[in-house]
């Protein structure tokens, strides 16, 4: 497998504010890589350095074999970009916007196919200004795909979507993945990272605090929790081996003729892990 993105020890400050303090990761071709972090963590800064919009203060970056700071046309042919915030000319129709952007690429995808892919076929001839926020976001996505890129950057692609639209977008991103596209997405949503990403980097205050598959992140250093109530008192037991502990607890309760009220076993969710990671660093600045 080839490497699509290499970021090595990226640093970036905005007059005094250290936005990135040594960010390193690699993204393999064909992989969906998630950058997960709270507001101001440095997600957009990282992504925009990779897209060639911002300059880094130090560190090395390679995107599809190119240095994005030079933004060569050969690289721009092969990437698709969804910005965290952007708009299109309000007077054009959905189809016209797609056609406009398709004209910039050597080998664009079929415009109608892309419009359909992002679920805007009913809005094909609607003016941009009449679209809802979520539909505009889909337009963003369509425009990013119309050049048939190998690598797609999605900065918070589903922010502002209703739950149904989010599912649709997830399906779309899975479709892209199955087409062999490499995807770098940023998100605040844990479930999104968990659902979509092959690997997740949790970023906090300009540093990557954890990196791995969603399962690895959950698996590392976290115990399962067994909760129940006994005589009206809540009890929490943490354990590395929930099967054994549960067995011991229930046998003992049965032997003594007691009940374990409200018994539940909880695996830590990615959310717990995330809040742990992010919360722990909050005051470390």
């Amino acid at each position: 497998m080839t490497t699509a993105i290499v970021a090595n020890d990226l640093h970036k400050s905005y007059d005094g504010v250290e936005a990135l303090r040594g960010v390193s990761f690699e993204v393999q071709a064909g992989e969906v890589f998630g950058l997960l972090g709270p507001n101001g963590a440095g997600k957009t800064t990282t992504v925009e350095i990779l897209e060639g919009y911002r300059t880094r203060d130090s560190g090395e970056v390679t995107v599809l074999g190119h240095d994005p700071a030079a933004a060569p046309r050969a690289l721009r042919e092969r990437i698709g970009v969804v910005l965290q915030q952007s708009e299109f000319t309000p007077h054009l129709t959905v189809r016209e916007v797609h056609r406009l952007f398709a004209g910039y690429y050597e080998h664009p995808r079929d415009v109608d196919e892309v419009v359909q892919l992002v679920g805007l076929e009913e809005k094909r001839d609607a003016r941009v200004k009449t679209l809802s926020g979520g539909q505009k976001r889909r337009l963003d996505l369509g425009v990013a795909l119309v050049g048939d890129p190998d690598l797609v950057f999605l900065d918070e692609p589903t922010t502002g979507f209703d739950p149904a639209a989010r599912r649709t977008a997830w399906d779309l991103i899975r479709t892209l993945r199955s087409l062999g596209k490499t995807i770098l997405l940023t998100t605040h949503y844990l479930d999104e990272a968990q659902q979509l990403a092959d690997r997740v980097a949790v970023i906090q205050a300009g540093r990557i605090v954890s990196l791995g598959t969603p399962a690895e992140l959950i698996g590392t250093a976290h115990k399962a929790e067994i909760r129940f109530e006994m005589n009206g008192e809540p009890v929490v037991v943490q354990t590395e081996d929930p099967t054994l502990t549960l067995h011991e607890l229930t046998s003992e309760a049965l032997a003594n003729g007691r009940r374990l009220e409200h018994l539940e076993v909880r695996r830590p969710s990615l959310e717990d892990v995330y809040l742990d990671l992010v919360g722990g660093e909050e005051n470390a600045e």
């Binding site: 897209e51 060639g52 919009y53 933004a71 046309r73 721009r76 042919e77 990437i79 970009v81 910005l83 915030q85 952007s86 708009e87 299109f88 000319t89 952007f101 910039y104 690429y105 050597e106 425009v143 050049g147």
Partner: peptide
């Protein structure tokens, strides 16, 4: 200001 120019910069349009 609405990001149209920025958006164009990442396309191959010179």
């Amino acid at each position: 200001e609405v990001g149209i120019l920025k958006r164009l910069r990442s396309t191959p349009l010179p």
